[in-house]
Design a protein around this nucleic acid. Structure first.
Lengths: 155, 155
DNA sequence: TGTCGAAATGATATGTTGTATCTTTCTTCG
DNA sequence: CGAAGAAAGATACAACATATCATTTCGACA
């Protein structure tokens, strides 16, 4: 593992609970709508666009949910570390460990669309330092690598 | 300098000439339209959206140029290394040294919108290696750092 | 428990970014 | 010149994102 501290990778119900805890700890409400959006997001195998999620939530709720509601909630999730935005594909993924903060690196497969996520604080630390060295005050490093994943490479 | 080989940073007419040479060397035509798009792109201080460029070119040409034409040409420029796309802001910048290939790193100021560009092949090399180590076949690393530039920090 | 203020969501419209398709024009080269 | 292919134009539309205002829900507290 590239970083020293331990952390839990949550899944399913555990992930949902971790998300809820994290959100509430930051003083936000865990509403039915937010739960529904989180569920939808977590069920996608690939980064999902706000509109993908709107569709999934609409189906789950049996009524039409408009994009703006989804965006609002996704923005909240990203701000609270429950989700990440993959900039180069305009889409979102659930964060498997909302309880700890990393600059994360996405490996985005151009063939199947999957985005796997690695944390390497030394790598992102180097990026941060290089930027600071150029007189830049870093808020958020974005590292996304496009290519093909091992599975797609085989085929 | 973070990388060992020398290369020229072009500006103005020299940049335009370098762009033209690079494009023609790759078997593409340097047309009036492409020149016009390149001029427009190079004149922006900040990453410019395709629509920004469409507007600038329309003004320069005295007739309406539609977005699709701009996109076509920008795609060609990016493929030929004459321009870069800054993914996290959906915008494009001219490449100051089209004649050599780097994985580049953009420092994007959230206050003024400027994107400065640094090359550090060792950094991007580390990113590439980390991805390959995870069984991923890398085509294109994207490294963009958001924050505030030195100028904006002062104020 | 009722009600008041704040937070969240809904409805609707619109702005921005990006593609698809087909037609017309331009360039190259025999 | 004339044919073939490359480039650009016209048009329509899809996908992504935000703004504004109305309505509902939540939570605190008398």
């Amino acid at each position: 593992m590239a970083h020293a501290h331990s952390h839990v990778i949550h899944e399913g119900a555990s992930l949902k609970q971790a998300a809820r805890d994290t959100l509430e700890k930051s003083g936000q409400q865990w509403t039915a709508m937010r739960a529904s959006v989180f569920d939808a997001l977590a069920q996608f195998e690939r980064p999902a666009s706000a509109y993908d999620i709107a569709e999934a939530v609409s189906k789950a709720e049996g009524r039409r949910i408009a994009a703006n509601s989804i965006y609002r909630i996704l923005d909240l999730f990203v701000a609270s570390n429950l989700a990440r935005r993959v900039e180069s594909v305009n889409a979102y993924v659930a964060n498997a460990h909302p309880d700890c903060q990393h600059d994360c690196i996405f490996l985005v497969c151009d063939a199947c669309g999957q985005a796997t996520h690695i944390d390497d604080d030394s790598l992102s630390g180097n990026v941060r330092r290089a930027a600071e060295k150029a007189g830049f005050s870093v808020k958020r490093p974005i590292i996304e690598v496009h290519g093909t994943c091992a599975d797609c490479d085989k085929n």
